[in-house]
Nucleic acid binder design. Structure first.
Length: 546
RNA sequence: GGUCCCGUCGUCUAGUGGCCCAGGACGCCGCCCUCUCAAGGCGGUAACGCCGGUUCGACUCCGGUCGGGACUACCA
């Protein structure tokens, strides 16, 4: 055990003791059952959709229990900090309307950035040192590698524990000598774990869990050669979650195996243990197996993907909530968003994220929106991600409105052709001559393999006798007539009966017109499209291929 | 290697011993509607990983096994 003098000489003379922090951050005065939660992203990269998932759960639990939810930036790894990450977190969480109930401006439990809490951690490290629950470790990287190698050779478990913990029982003289020589050190927790010991605890999602007790003397304070002395995740977790008076820690299940250590830390520090809820991470199918959604490999792992594609926040939230609690997926969207997420409703296994399902949800959601709302959202999105489209929209707001109204207003089944705002250009862009690219190649794939000659014939026959839609015009008759003349079957059924007798049915013929007019195989009612375009533009597009 | 977690249709899941030769949703396929694409309506497809045990009875309980995943850092 180190002498008090030596220990104190390691810290600022005016460093307050734990009682100071205890007083400064008193227990919260909250109604019974209120949950205090936190989301603690590490600004070492961009926000992961799994982060949004967990943050959403945190915020929802706090909201519905009358508690508090806070965002804590966990930047103890100063070496891996990424420029702009904190701002990106804020943007991403804002997009999904997940906002903390307290922050540096309004909260009493800050600062909410770990690098600003260095002094607090130091107080508790010193306390542990004074009580001999921690010790100084001067092992170098080479020492550590050496230990690992020997353990491997001996078939022992890896780690810094027992007889392998070379500084665990070092004498004060040894420590003084190293200190004098200016050698850097870390502070390690003196684990009370015994060989063969077991721990058990209750996880709010998984129930009773047990594991081998922790025996590893984990590092709690990083190297003394760093300008800012910060703790490791484990120690910061214990100190912060206690002092911020967090009642429930919701985190990804990769932390499950660290729980024994965390429990020891809470106990050694004299803190009440927190309740844990370990959620399974979002997964991705990879060949025949599945793995955690990876930021490196999967574009949809990044929150940016959803924002850039312009997925409506409500649709993504609805999808994520359904993943969290299956029964929410059975509810209509408004109810699902309003119904509290329950810890007991989680599945212990990690779900695969299914973009096809999200698309379906999103299309359904957009179909419920009035044209005005869609216009506003598309315009906002386009300003950031498709400036040319934004310009066109701003120049022709009336056209844009009319376009969005087609088959959306006063119809029993509104079109479901918009899943994300990025769909606007491929789905409706052709209405705007400024951004429309005419189809000029009769062999274009979009014609579905119809003979190029026939494509040309359809186009020129159509153009030659074209009549704009009007009160006295049966617009589609034009197509029907030319289709008959060119030998197309009058309907799909007739064609199906004898496919050899026709080049195709009226369906194929009208698809030629559709593709020429819109550049797409999918569009609203052709007569309405033609009407919106005007005679000149219709003819220009049809003749582009002749 | 060790420890821990997980395992129902392709996917998300319902199911807490008989209501299940397993229900819903998405997907896919087909049919219908329709002058054309969608949308919509109707129908179909498809699963309890495997082996034992407990029980009158097991998707549900127990054991094993296989498979998948996480952790095993001065990363979080």
């Amino acid at each position: 055990m180190l002498s008090p003098d030596l220990i104190d000489s390691l810290f600022p003379a005016d460093l307050p003791g734990p009682e100071h922090w205890e007083k400064r951050y008193p227990p919260r005065d909250l109604p019974p059952g209120a949950q205090v939660t936190r989301f603690g992203p590490s600004p070492t990269g961009y926000l992961h959709i799994g982060g949004v998932y967990v943050a959403m759960v945190d915020a929802d639990l706090a909201l519905h229990s009358g508690g508090a939810y806070l965002l804590r930036i966990e930047d103890t790894d100063q070496a891996r900090l990424t420029e702009g990450a904190t701002e990106q977190f804020a943007d991403g969480l804002t997009y999904f309307t997940i906002s903390p109930t307290e922050d540096d401006l309004s909260g009493h439990y800050g600062p909410y950035v770990q690098s600003s809490r260095a002094e607090i951690y130091l107080s508790y490290v010193r306390e542990l040192l004074r009580r001999d629950r921690a010790y100084l470790d001067f092992a170098t990287k080479a020492d550590l590698q050496d230990i690992t190698a020997k353990q491997r050779a001996a078939g022992a478990l890896p780690g810094y524990y027992g007889k392998w913990a070379i500084w665990r029982d070092a004498s004060e003289d040894q420590v003084r000598e190293k200190l004098l020589a200016g050698e850097p050190y870390v502070v390690r927790f003196r684990s009370p774990g015994l060989s063969g010991g077991r721990v058990s605890y209750t996880d709010a999602i998984r129930g009773e869990l047990s594991a081998d007790d922790n025996r590893n003397d984990a590092v709690i304070l990083k190297s003394s050669d760093q300008p800012l002395r910060l703790p490791t995740y484990h120690f910061a977790h214990a100190v912060d979650d206690h002092l911020m008076r967090i009642s429930l820690v919701v985190r990804s299940d990769e932390w499950l195996s660290s729980v024994p250590l965390h429990l020891q830390l809470f106990d050694a520090l004299g803190f009440d243990r927190v309740q844990y809820a370990h959620v399974a991470p979002l997964m991705k199918q990879d060949g025949s197996s599945r793995r955690k959604l990876s930021k490196r490999k999967d574009p949809e792992a990044s929150v940016g993907f959803f924002i850039e594609q312009g997925y409506p926040a409500e649709a993504v939230q609805y999808y994520l909530r359904g993943l969290a609690n299956g029964r929410l997926a059975e509810l209509p969207l408004p109810e699902a968003l309003a119904t509290p997420i329950e810890l007991s409703g989680f599945n212990a296994a990690g779900p695969l994220v299914d973009l096809v399902k999200l698309d379906d949800i999103s299309a359904d959601y957009v179909a419920t929106l009035p044209a005005d709302a869609i216009m506003g959202q598309v315009a906002t999105w386009a300003e950031a991600y498709d400036p040319a489209l934004a310009e066109v929209l701003a120049a022709e707001p009336d056209l844009a409105r009319r376009v969005l109204d087609i088959e959306r207003v006063d119809v029993p089944n509104p079109r479901k052709d918009l899943r994300r705002w990025a769909d606007f250009r491929p789905v409706y862009g052709y209405f705007f001559p400024q951004i429309f690219v005419p189809v000029t190649d009769p062999a274009d794939d979009r014609f579905g393999g119809l003979a190029p000659d026939l494509v040309r014939q359809v186009a020129s026959a159509f153009a030659d006798q074209y009549q704009a839609p009007g009160p006295d015009v049966e617009w589609f008759n034009q197509i029907r007539e030319l289709a008959t003349q060119l030998g197309f079957a009058p309907n799909a059924k007739t064609y199906k009966k004898d496919p050899e007798a026709y080049p195709g049915s009226i369906r194929e013929a009208s698809q030629v017109i559709r593709v020429l007019l819109t550049g797409s195989g999918r569009s609203p009612d052709l007569a309405q499209v033609a009407g919106a375009l005007g005679v000149d533009e219709v003819l220009r597009r049809i003749r582009a291929v002749v």
